[in-house]
Design a protein around this nucleic acid. Structure first.
Length: 425
RNA sequence: GGAGGGGUGGCCGAGUGGUCGAAGGCGGCGGUCUUGAAAACCGCUGUACCGCAAGGUACCGGGGGUUCGAAUCCCUCCCCCUCCGCCA
């Protein structure tokens, strides 16, 4: 959510941001609503009058005098108040709704562009492996090795699910443990294991609602399956005023993530790339505004560390305005080149939001003991996605004979296993 | 799921129709005293919106209602606690 003063005082800045994003948001409607809302604030004077008269009535009755004339006067004032309030309520409701639908303002350094073609590669680490044989995709290798099973998942749940079995399940658990251990012990994050379901308020807090309800699974009871740990983590301090000295607060959480993937059919959808359920270790920070840029840089590096430990080559990409999500003001993706697919896919997405989410969650901090509270800045990033990383490992570490070498860093977490072999016949 | 008890300011806790944005305590900030500190004493100390300001409006879990007037009465929803049932 943006500051409503921005709508009033710097509408051109907002308009430019919307244009950069190629957003079809109706800013003029919002500006008109805000203007009308301010006109209707005159109702406050009438309320003041009512309060004053009511006090007089109390005093009059106490003195034993007749207050009927005063009561009649207040009734007349109340009629006027009622009229104005009904319109004010309407205008405010629509205004608040629209405010939840306006996207964040991209930062100046975000390249202007249309789609992912216009994203900018800012860093590369390692080199893509050169194969002296035809590399196989993970959706062939995984089933051959008996570690990924799509048929079982289809029986249990349906399309777009996978069942990890044996060394596959072990490796995914190893990835989770490697990531959590690294982030908590070496990078200073506090581990959190939150609920995997969240209420409406929390999904509004992160910006998944009201606009993106179709992407979510919803339970009969009205709860939503979390699409990312960002949701519970970002909402941990709803309605709180944090001690400025405690910032930055850094959290790391493993969770399953659930996405309906409505309308995603056919795209990047082979294997375990795009699933209804996947697993992820998420990094999330609450910072002071002036800390935000440095902390984001550290957060991205923390995610990169995982890929470096796994010796997976990657590149860092700065998303352009056209590819930027609704909520972030800036996003870096970490991408791995999947050799069999011949394309780069993100293993991590790290975003900063400025005050955008903090306003929605009402999470503030007090810079000094006596100072006014102000909104924190939030940011988060996958550190990193487990399923896609598992796929990357399978493809990157495959051998010509169909086995997969286990990255050194994972072996301690896998009972010393160094290579995944096919099941015995 | 059944029965009962609760949700008040950073925290604890009074308040059952008017002068209550809310006693008192704790915590915090400032001051007096002190070589310094502690103790004691004095003062200040919620948030948002409108306003240059004075000031005004709203908020006592959320929403709605009764009333000239609601923290206080009524309805409804949510959350927490205790006991019973069920259960990993």
């Amino acid at each position: 959510m943006l500051d409503r003063r921005l709508i009033r005082e710097e509408p051109d800045r907002v308009r430019q941001a919307l244009e950069k994003r190629r957003s079809d948001f109706d800013l003029d409607e919002l500006i008109q609503l805000e203007a009308r809302r301010r006109e209707l604030l005159a109702v406050e004077e009438l309320r003041a009058k009512r309060n004053e008269l009511s006090k007089q009535i109390g005093a009059t009755i106490k003195a034993g005098d007749d207050a009927e004339a005063l009561k009649a006067e207040v009734s007349e004032v109340n009629r006027q108040i009622e009229q104005m309030e009904s319109e004010l309520t309407e205008v405010e409701a629509l205004f608040d709704q629209r405010m939840l639908e306006i996207p964040n303002i991209p930062r100046d350094e975000v390249p202007i562009g249309v789609d992912e073609e216009d994203n900018v590669v800012v860093e590369e680490w390692g080199e893509a492996r050169r194969f002296d044989f035809e590399p196989k995709p993970h959706w062939e290798l995984g089933p051959q090795l008996g570690i990924l099973n799509f048929e079982v998942a289809a029986k249990l749940a349906g399309a777009r699910f996978v069942t990890d079995i044996g060394a596959g399940a072990l490796m995914e658990r190893a990835l989770i443990n490697l990531m959590l251990d690294t982030h908590t012990r070496k990078h200073g994050y506090t581990e959190v294991l939150p609920p995997f379901l969240a209420n409406e308020r929390s999904l509004i807090g992160t910006g998944n609602l009201p606009k993106f309800e179709d992407d979510l699974f919803k339970t009969r009871e009205g709860l939503y399956l979390i699409p990312t740990a960002e949701v519970p983590l970002t909402n941990m301090h709803q309605d709180e005023i944090l001690d400025g000295n405690l910032l930055p607060l850094c959290y790391a959480a493993y969770t399953a993530c659930f996405r309906s993937e409505a309308g995603a059919a056919g795209r990047e959808s082979r294997g375990i790339i795009r699933q209804h359920q996947f697993h992820k270790v998420e990094l999330m920070k609450f910072t002071r505004p002036e800390q935000a840029d440095d902390e984001l840089e550290k957060l991205v590096k923390d995610a990169e560390t995982i890929l470096e430990l796994l010796e997976l080559p990657y590149r860092r990409v700065l998303l352009c305005t056209g590819d930027l999500g609704f909520q972030p003001e800036r996003t870096y993706d970490l991408e791995f080149y999947f050799p069999a697919m011949g394309r780069w896919l993100e293993l991590s997405s790290c975003s900063q939001y400025g005050e955008f989410q903090a306003r929605r969650c009402n999470t503030r901090f007090r810079p000094q003991p006596e100072a006014k509270p102000q909104f924190v800045h939030t940011m988060n990033g996958s550190g990193v996605a487990c399923g896609r990383t598992l796929a990357a490992i399978i493809e990157h570490y495959q051998q010509e004979n169909g086995t997969v070498v286990v990255p050194e860093a994972l072996r301690p977490y896998m009972g010393g296993l160094s290579e995944i072999l096919p099941p015995l016949p």
